[in-house]
Write a protein that binds this DNA or RNA. Structure first.
Length: 560
RNA sequence: GCGCCUGUAGCUCAGUUGGAUAGAGCAACGGACUUCUAAUCCGUAGGUCGCACGUUCGAAUCGUGCCGGGCGCGCCA
């Protein structure tokens, strides 16, 4: 299988030319600097261009244009893919590809099918993506949804590119907020029995707390009133956390997000992992005692100050269990660990990186993806969102209203470090305002063409026929094939930069090219040969669309 | 005050990890449906890439300073 990308072929041609030029004495140094093969923004500059000459100028001690001339002079084109080359501007070499040289791309798309676009970056290495990890103290809201899609899609991308990926949800089921949850439920429970209670402001205010309390009463799960308050609170806490977690699991499921592992914070304590981690760090003198507390020397690893891991009262901080948790991740054999956090936690990154570094892991082994907030709007007006008052819009409500596909896609229409306006009305619109349908519509349209083609006996679907493909001469057709050829590069950069929005933008581009083509040229005509070639082309477009949408976890409808 | 993020068309945002004359969508204006799905397309107009220096063949992109916006700075989670 020799599916070299066009870009790679150009790179080979340039390098070979450089070597020949060197042998012939037209270049001085065998030291070729790194250079780029890129796709120029303007069509007049060809299909590809290279900055080799400019990049090499200082080493070769020659004017860039002279170097470019030498490269062009000694250039060989064994595959016969070049129509012409030219030297332009300060020393760019522009390459114009013969239209028929693009056709094999279509065959590659067919041959590789659902694997088209995948580059093996991971080589089977184990990577873990941890995301959402919302406290089980209330339902997921829209912001969690964004993190969920980003994490899920990053995991899809890495898995597609040869990593062995595990998706994990970290459950904060120990500590104070869980106790507060228990207390909240307990107090609501007492209210149900007509008792006067003073419901504190720092308890969870949402109605779901009342629902849980009612649930406990109605199903006669336990008689909390007969228990000692302390026992009742902890019983309520466990019950409520499990119940809420079940809801979170369901919400995520209907959002298309599933996890391979649900990891309990409490289990770290139960298995003595926190204690063990602290002990190890203490013996390595990375922890030290000061003012009656235990401190981590994070400042020696780039943090601005040291951090407390065990308080004066003997209780560990959240940081302590987080250290243990991350050490545990690496102990489980993951070579690479990726955390997806809300942007409000960004101040936490230096100390977490410090902890990972102190554990002897390399910088590249740990990444944090910071997902910025979502502004929920309805027809341009902000929707009130306050967790404290309990008046927030849940992820479930959003998914129920606009659908899984629209929600997922829209969450990925921005770089995750950019705040996102999510307008519920726009998400439902079936117009160009809403990119989901714009992209899905391509898939539906092509599916429709295929259904029509199936009625005709003169159109074998999916057959490679070089002769008929030669009929694909329109600029729009070549543009489409070029876009398909670009897809593997897009996937690679999305995966290596952990930037799923690149797939989204690519699909919108491809969709625009297709819709333009569709409006200008008819696929199925009286001309069998031409129809066959165009059918071959649009079927390839459909395959790539499908691949891209599946990475995003968005469906590819046959009809709309 | 310190740190992180951010500033690109009226609005919302891309920008191939330093490339050539800065790109979409929306909004505005003007067009295209007896043809495979008009949930579409075509055209026009729209810019001091926050500002100023610097780095170099070349900067929206890198560096420094300033201005504006968001967030974070607990022995909380």
């Amino acid at each position: 299988m020799n599916h070299h990308s066009m870009k790679q072929k150009i790179l080979d041609i340039v390098l070979a030319a450089a070597h020949r030029a060197l042998e012939a004495g037209a270049l001085r140094s065998s030291d070729f600097p790194p250079f780029e093969i890129e796709e120029p923004k303007l069509v007049q500059f060809g299909d590809f261009s290279t900055n080799f000459a400019m990049a090499a100028a200082s080493v070769q001690k020659k004017a860039p244009r002279k170097i470019a001339e030498a490269i062009v002079k000694y250039m060989d084109d064994p595959g016969g893919i070049l129509q012409r080359t030219e030297i332009a501007g300060p020393g760019f070499i522009n390459f114009f590809i013969r239209p028929d040289a693009w056709y094999p791309v279509l065959k590659t798309v067919y041959d590789q099918g659902s694997a088209y676009g995948a580059r093996d970056l991971g080589n089977g290495r184990k990577v873990q993506v941890e995301f959402v990890s919302a406290n089980p103290t209330g339902p997921l809201h829209v912001g969690h949804g964004r993190g969920a899609v980003v994490g899920d899609t990053v995991a899809n991308l890495l898995s597609f590119c040869g990593y062995d990926v595990q998706k994990e949800y970290y459950i904060n089921d120990s500590g104070r907020q869980i106790r507060t949850l228990g207390l909240s439920v307990y107090l609501r429970y007492k209210e149900l029995f007509g008792q006067e209670v003073n419901f504190p402001a720092d308890c969870y205010q949402g109605d779901y707390i009342r629902d849980i309390a009612a649930d406990i009463r109605n199903r006669n799960q336990a008689d909390l009133l007969k228990m000692k308050e302390e026992d009742a609170v902890s019983w309520a806490a466990r019950y409520a956390a499990a119940d809420i977690l079940e809801g979170i699991r369901d919400d995520l499921k209907s959002f298309g997000v599933g996890f391979d592992n649900w990891f309990s914070e409490q289990s770290l304590y139960d298995r003595g992992r926190v204690e063990a981690a602290m002990g190890e760090l203490l013996s390595r003198k990375i922890l030290y005692e000061h003012d009656g507390a235990l401190w981590f020397k994070t400042s020696e690893y780039g943090d601005e100050k040291d951090r407390v891991v065990v308080r004066t009262n003997g209780i560990t901080t959240y940081f302590a269990s987080d250290i243990a948790y991350h050490l545990d991740k690496f102990d489980r054999g993951f070579e690479r660990v990726i955390d997806v956090w809300g942007a409000d936690h960004h101040g936490y990154i230096p100390r977490m990186k410090a902890a990972v570094a102190a554990a002897g892991r390399r910088k590249e082994q740990f990444d944090v993806i910071l997902v910025h907030l979502v502004n929920l709007l309805r027809a341009g007006e902000p929707v009130a969102m306050s967790t404290r008052s309990g008046e927030f819009v849940t992820l479930r409500e959003v998914v129920n209203e606009v659908g899984k596909d629209a929600a997922r896609f829209i969450f990925l229409t921005r770089h995750y470090e950019s705040p996102l306006d999510f307008d519920l009305e726009v998400a439902k619109q079936k117009t160009n305002d809403n990119p989901v349908f714009y992209v899905q519509y391509v898939h539906a349209r092509i599916s429709s063409i295929q259904r029509n083609a199936a009625e005709r006996s003169d159109l074998p679907q999916g057959a490679w026929d070089q002769q008929s493909l030669m009929l694909l001469q329109a600029p729009e057709e070549i543009q489409l094939i070029k876009a398909l050829a670009r897809y593997p590069d897009v996937v690679q950069s999305a995966a290596s930069l952990l930037e799923p929005h690149r797939i989204t933008f690519y699909l919108m581009d491809l969709a625009a090219l297709f819709h333009a083509y569709y409006n200008k040229h008819r696929v199925l005509t009286e001309d069998s040969m031409l129809s066959q070639s165009r059918l071959y082309l649009v079927t390839a477009v459909r395959k790539v669309m499908r691949n891209g949408l599946s990475l995003l976890g968005v469906s590819a409808p046959e009809k709309m």
